[in-house]
Design a protein around this nucleic acid. Structure first.
Lengths: 253, 253
DNA sequence: CTGCTTTCTGCAGGAATTTACACGACTATG
DNA sequence: CATAGTCGTGTAAATTCCTGCAGAAAGCAG
């Protein structure tokens, strides 16, 4: 990656998130924190941003409304996303489901090597507009606006043509007995189909989804390759899933 | 390989990827890095690109990058968009091209009756997330990030399956002799294909696009069903198009 | 065809840039 | 005030850049 390119990317992230954390960026770019800090110092000297302890902020103290809205993406989801993004390896193909949790994965995808992202969500595709190295395959179909994902026969057909290595599945509920579920029948069918086409399926789980059930069944719990959960979830409530032989990845704060 | 040929190729790669890395290009061309660096130096002297450590970047930090383009002549585009949106009738199917001008159409689409919108741009699809009545069909394919549209064989195939009543075409240039054109070859092919599948094609024209030509030809002027232009454009400069028998819709302020 | 000139290309070596690591200093936070 | 995290500087290694030069190819005049 070219240095000047990296600097413009940092500015992009700064505009998008309203902040830049040296450590995070260093991870995303696969570079040392020193390099990032040097970049930040130089850009601060050019009056492109404001250097602060731990990272940098935009020069103009943005409207409080804006930063408030940007910051809402709860830390838990962001951490889950950052963790999942690290599971992507060079050259692999990853399928990103629609939803806010998977959107966080898209934001944290590594930027120092190439890989392919497949998604049936225009929102996710939009998140990747400024990603420097990701090749994006968009799955078309009839748009289900509630979740902003393509659905229908055309989507199923297009999905059948790809063989993702990893599928990051978003659900509204997960239950030891009732399995993974979501609110829309069509959407459930799509998710199930993607999982069947993918070598591995990982599901992102937050507290409020655990031990719940939504109307439409997607898959049984043991059909997934692993669950990604925040460390705030007690070991006790994970026990039923562990006994179902599902690998669980705990993301510490 | 001829030198000038090589330089053209380098510019192509630069436009396509938004970056050029000396080492990579040298490998691809089977030449020494010195030769490539010399080329880059010379082209930088000719103001064709921006030389940076490790390679080169497009001259102006992404001259017409999509997100950067958002914001040029917004009022005019909004009026054009509002006018075009009124051309949509109940029950019809409309294809929206990618781009900032067509995004304005999406924002102004009528909300009191149902119709179908087809688009190969995730950005446009995103604009329609909160539209109450529009059915949205998303065309999938390999995402061309510069313009944020799906491209490739998959996109062509999917487009072939729809028969839009109206296609709102976005271009970067229109010229009485050279016709409609845009910057990317693949994108031009897609636009041409959409136009061939559609009953009618209307092109949105603003002042800076008039009487200009971009590298890749899409269609001749007389292939379109009509041009939508702002009233600020003089009748004089429209004369060549009127004599080509192209209906012109003037949008007053 | 021959000899000369011009242009292009690759190589060598020194300069400049970039990056990562180490270490002591600094800052935030409890 | 203690600790963990972050900063900045110095340094060494790697990479990239530039200059000068020599050989090869192409163009041109005689």
């Amino acid at each position: 990656m070219l240095t000047s390119q990296r600097k413009t990317l940092i500015l992009d992230i700064l505009r998008r998130d309203g902040q830049v954390i040296a450590k995070t960026i260093a991870d995303d770019f696969g570079l040392s924190e020193d390099t990032i800090r040097r970049d930040l110092r130089e850009m601060a000297a050019e009056r492109l941003l404001k250097r602060v302890h731990g990272g940098a902020l935009p020069l103009a103290p943005e409207l409080p409304d804006f930063s408030a809205r940007r910051g809402v993406s709860p830390d838990v989801k962001r951490q889950l996303g950052a963790f999942a993004a690290k599971m992507v390896r060079p050259g692999r193909t990853v399928f990103l489901d629609g939803g806010t949790t998977t959107a966080e994965i898209a934001r944290h995808l590594p930027r120092n090597f190439t890989f392919t992202v497949v998604t049936h969500s225009p929102t996710i595709a939009g998140e990747l507009e400024h990603h420097p190295t990701a090749e994006v395959i968009l799955i078309g179909g009839k748009l289900y606006k509630h979740s902003m994902v393509a659905t229908g026969a055309a989507a199923i057909a297009a999905i059948s043509l790809v063989r993702p290595d990893i599928f990051f599945l978003g659900v509204t509920a997960i239950h030891p007995v009732h399995g993974l579920s979501t609110g829309d029948f069509e959407e459930a069918a799509i998710k199930r189909h993607i999982a069947q086409c993918s070598a591995e399926t990982y599901v992102m789980v937050t507290q409020e989804k655990l031990d719940a059930a939504s109307p439409c069944h997607i898959l049984p719990v043991k059909a997934v390759s692993g669950m990604v959960v925040p460390s705030s979830i007690t070991e006790e409530s994970l026990a039923p899933y562990r006994s179902a032989q599902v690998p669980i990845f705990t993301v510490s704060d």
